[in-house]
Nucleic acid binder design. Structure first.
Ligand SMILES: [Zn+2]
Ligand SMILES: [Zn+2]
Ligand SMILES: [Zn+2]
Ligand SMILES: [Zn+2]
Lengths: 150, 150
DNA sequence: GTGCAAATGCGAATCAGTCGCATTAAGGAG
DNA sequence: CTCCTTAATGCGACTGATTCGCATTTGCAC
């Protein structure tokens, strides 16, 4: 999103007050290339000189996720939740199980599959999450060299 | 898996000792129709009269997941990990965000997609997880009646 | 401006999961 | 079968992410 009033409108539409902290959080998420944890976000904001508390960060993230303005993701492993702006494009992720790097992927081949399942189970699908695990190029190469099979 | 010696072999193959607790855990997971949390599993075992501690449950689940004998899954929301036996068939899940019921789904349409991504990113995919969120038949119906849109 | 509910800060509390260490028991060698 | 090594277990303390209660502040409708 481009300008701040954009966020104001999104918040108002969801009956959320347009507070400076929510603005800052949305801007920071917008600026981030990849999903961030609550703590990372908190530290980023502090570095920018914004005085905010962890509880506020958590509460804002929760309500924004609930209202579908941001997306909450849990990659296994470090049991920390990650958050990212909901961009118009829906994304999936390739997660390297070795170095933990995350590659976002744009394409989603999912729509027909979803419709078929809805018919089959009478289930109304509102969203989905696809995460793929494996080894990134760098890690597979380093393992090839060291002889450790993935 | 059918008989217990099967588990013994699987464990041995991974250099894990074939302990009675691991047997019990694998049997309980085998018997369960859906993924269970460590705590649920613990309670199930206690009810069966098996004396075991939570640490053992957690440790066993960890090592079994690491060795790829069971699968660890994190659905968001209650931030508890769930575990299930790795059946020969790979599954996805439909998770009802209202009543939390889980419907396992057999079909996986992702193989070609996965191959394409591997080529595109030089990423070696070893597994993936797809979770779909929405409302089960019962919950959509009850909401239709009450006038609450999903 | 005024008033009120929503949002925030702070610290305490919760709670899934982990760890250290002493004890038990698999399972291989003889 | 017995002994020995070492993995596995139990127990309780601990951790670290997230949540909660409550007093205070702030957005915003009128
Ligand atoms: Zn990597
Ligand atoms: Zn998708
Ligand atoms: Zn339901
Ligand atoms: Zn699949």
């Amino acid at each position: 999103m481009e300008d701040k009033s954009q966020y104001g409108r999104m918040l108002k539409k969801e009956n959320l007050r347009n507070t400076s902290h929510r603005q800052s959080i949305l801007e920071a998420l917008e600026a981030s290339k990849e999903p961030v944890s609550a703590e990372t976000l908190y530290l980023t904001l502090r570095e920018k000189g914004i005085s905010i508390s962890m509880s506020t960060v958590y509460r804002a993230l929760d309500v924004l996720a609930e209202k579908n303005i941001i997306v909450k993701t849990d990659f296994t492993d470090n049991n920390k939740s990650l958050f990212e702006i909901k961009r118009e494009e829906h994304r999936h992720h390739l997660v390297c199980v070795k170095c933990r790097s995350v590659i976002p992927v744009m394409e989603c081949p999912f729509h027909e599959y979803a419709r078929a399942l809805e018919r089959q189970f009478g289930f109304s699908i509102t969203g989905h999450k696809l995460e793929m695990y494996g080894y990134c190029r760098k890690c597979s190469e380093s393992m090839d060299k060291s002889g450790n099979a993935p």
